[in-house]
Design a protein around this nucleic acid. Structure first.
Lengths: 240, 240
DNA sequence: TGGTGCAACTGACATAAGTCATGTTTTGCA
DNA sequence: TGCAAAACATGACTTATGTCAGTTGCACCA
């Protein structure tokens, strides 16, 4: 019986032991909260291209990413998609909508096969109500997201496509890393990169081509490798 | 003595009685918290054009706007100013920096003569620590700001200057209202409007001129009056 | 294994936005 | 009240971005 308990304690499928928890506000949750959460959570698989949820949905809970990468995007009034954020292992999706009890303002779509835990919103609501440490952690996290969002607004409004692409490449490098050959690990389609940068696919491709000709990057199929990190960073700042 | 107490209770300079409190997370504060806050707050005047704080400052507290309007802006790497938000009566400035204990990422500048209460950050920190209702109210507020920020990102990335200007005019109308003649109450300089829209002053002026020629607005000096609200709204959505 | 279809790419052109120069009006103030 | 500075406005031009039309190349599968 003791050994059974030990096994349960080590079960990585339990929220209590989930590595994801190390990374975010969930670390502020108490043992009993995690246990309750784990007992009612539901692990789901999403295939590449499948939607986790769509803009306007009312979410019955939040999604905790265990594996894979998802894009959070929105269709503008002009009908074009804009990717607002890429969410990877450890990110919680749908938290904001649950906090404000509103419909989601973004769609989430799997960019790779994903493994995601769905946690009914009652758990989040209860913890927000009962556990001030958790609420504070969520608040801090949201405050820092807001800061990032402000920076993005300024970038979108004031920077050229060249600068924004340079920024996205650096972002992909620092956040998702590279494979053994030094190519960006995350292989987005040209069209998805364009949707992150906020431009048309053709111009995105042209700009990538220019970067290649200028020796800033190397491409191989859809794979991209950053060669001149320094110049790329200079580009982001001053013009050129 | 009783009458003295009554007078103090009715004193509108006390946080407990401040109308501003009705509007925001401060309504979740308890009597004792408000009293402590009121006893150490400091009311300051800012003249039009004066900075409340600058990007990179470490704030010793938050600013609560009692009167007047302030712009929150940031200088992009390219050296141009982008206005991220206009804050008016009842808004709390600097809250995010206090929550994350970081430097501010935005500058705040008075666009009109302002009256602002400065509240030392210890009060906010204490209430975040002791008063879950307050923390939850702040969290909800921040979540809704984040949603607005996401929408702004999409607009900046995907909409034309014409569309963004139309949006700003509607925003100024619904949020700050009009004077007795129906002109927008808030008289921003052309350059400030350009910094909100995210474009050059010349293009902003040209676009305003076009709107005037198309019968969407009337201008008189720096005053602007919206004539065709409906067309302006259509412009924001579909192209034209 | 040879289509079929989609993603990646390129060229040519149209439109949007930015910049520089310059004139005009308003505003603040000595 | 009159002058200087700042804000507003417009023209002419350059550059950035978007769009359409088409070609190439690669992966998938009947």
């Amino acid at each position: 019986m003791a050994s059974f308990e030990n096994m349960e304690n080590r079960d990585l499928n339990r929220c209590e032991n989930c590595i994801i928890r190390q990374m975010h506000s969930f670390r502020a949750l108490r043992k009993d909260e995690l246990k309750a959460m784990s007992d009612s959570k539901e692990t789901r698989q999403f295939k590449k291209g499948e939607p986790l949820f769509k803009e306007g949905d009312r979410l019955a809970g939040v999604f905790c990413v265990r594996n894979g990468i998802s894009k959070l995007s929105k269709i503008s009034d002009n009908g074009k998609e804009q990717i607002v954020k890429l969410a990877t292992k450890g990110e919680i999706l749908g938290q904001r909508s649950v906090i404000t009890s509103e419909q989601t303002n973004l769609s989430a779509t799997a960019l790779e096969d994903m493994e995601v835990c769905f946690i009914p919103k009652s758990h989040i609501e209860n913890s927000l109500h009962d556990n001030p440490a958790f609420t504070n952690a969520v608040l801090k996290h949201m405050a820092s997201e807001l800061k990032i969002a402000d920076d993005t607004i300024v970038n979108m409004a004031q920077k050229t496509v060249r600068q924004r692409l340079a920024e996205v490449l650096i972002y992909l490098h620092t956040n998702f890393g590279t494979d053994e050959d030094g190519y960006l690990y995350l292989q987005l389609s040209r069209s998805d990169i364009a949707d992150v940068v906020g431009t048309a696919t053709e111009l995105l491709i042209r700009t990538l081509t220019n970067f290649r000709k200028e020796g800033l990057i190397i491409t191989s199929g859809k794979r991209i490798k950053i060669i001149d990190n320094k110049l790329l960073n200079q580009l982001i700042q001053g013009h050129s």
